[in-house]
Amino acid sequence: MSEKTEIKQLGADVLRQWACAVDDFSSVEFHELIDTLLDVMRQSNGVGIAAPQIGVSLQVVVIASRPTARYPLAPEMAPVVMVNPRHEVLDATLIKDWEGCLSVPGIRALVPRHRTVKVAYQDKEGQDCQIVLHDFPARVFQHEFDHLQGLIYLDRVQDNRDIVAESEFFKRIAA
């Protein structure tokens, strides 16, 4: 299934919709969705992905911080599948840092995000879980959570001059 799964691009209606809560944790389609999200994220060198990005308007995200070609300085973190997530800000400090998105290729932007969040979610079996995320993993979660609310990272940019071509971004981090 994931070999042919396309990542929806900016302008696709599904990226601007509120995602629906998952209430059936036992369906084959739900578990295939999770497998597809993991596969597409890995194949795309992403550090996170949300179901709307592959055209499924359900509240499912995967957070998987790790160093990649797109995020060479990312810390290592095993993939976490989060279903029906919600979060609480634990550190209201807003930090601006660079983000990109598989649904908005070729562009990076400085985006303000909270430094620390506590996330409550269900795992793929429907069990209640919590995790506290700091810094880059917290940023990844907030980015993916936005997808569930019909937002993309460019909606959070404070100044249009903070948006750059990805080629320019890589020049800046190499300097």
Rank of each mutant, 00 (worst) to 15 (best):
V83G: 02
V40E: 07
H87I: 02
M41C: 13
K96Y: 00
P75V: 06
E76D: 02
R66W: 04
R86P: 04
A51E: 03
T93N: 14
T93M: 08
L94F: 03
Y71F: 12
P67Q: 10
M82N: 02
G48F: 02
G55Q: 14
R42N: 10
A92H: 07
L38P: 09
P67A: 14
N45A: 15
D97V: 02
V83A: 00
A51Q: 03
S57E: 01
Y71N: 15
L38W: 05
D97R: 02
Q43V: 04
G46W: 03
A92L: 00
V47K: 06
S44L: 09
P67V: 03
R70Q: 13
V83L: 06
S44A: 15
S44E: 01
A78F: 01
T93C: 08
V81F: 03
L90F: 04
P79S: 00
Q53I: 06
Y71E: 14
T93I: 03
P52A: 14
G46Q: 05
S57M: 13
I95H: 02
M77Y: 11
Y71K: 12
P85T: 07
I95T: 00
S65N: 11
I54E: 11
Q53G: 01
V60N: 13
S44I: 05
M82P: 05
A78I: 07
D97W: 15
L94T: 05
V60L: 04
V83E: 08
Q43M: 12
P67C: 11
R66A: 05
I95F: 01
N45W: 04
A69Y: 09
P52Q: 07
Y71A: 09
R66P: 06
P72A: 00
V80D: 01
V40D: 05
L38H: 02
S44Y: 07
I63T: 01
A92V: 04
R86G: 09
Q59L: 09
V47Y: 05
S57N: 15
D97I: 04
P85Y: 15
Q59P: 08
D39T: 04
P85Q: 07
D39V: 04
Q53F: 11
A51C: 11
D91E: 13
V40C: 05
E76H: 05
V83D: 00
S65D: 00
S57V: 12
T93H: 10
V56H: 13
Q59Y: 15
Q53C: 11
Q53D: 10
Q43C: 07
Y71V: 13
L58S: 13
Y71L: 14
D39F: 04
A92I: 06
I63W: 07
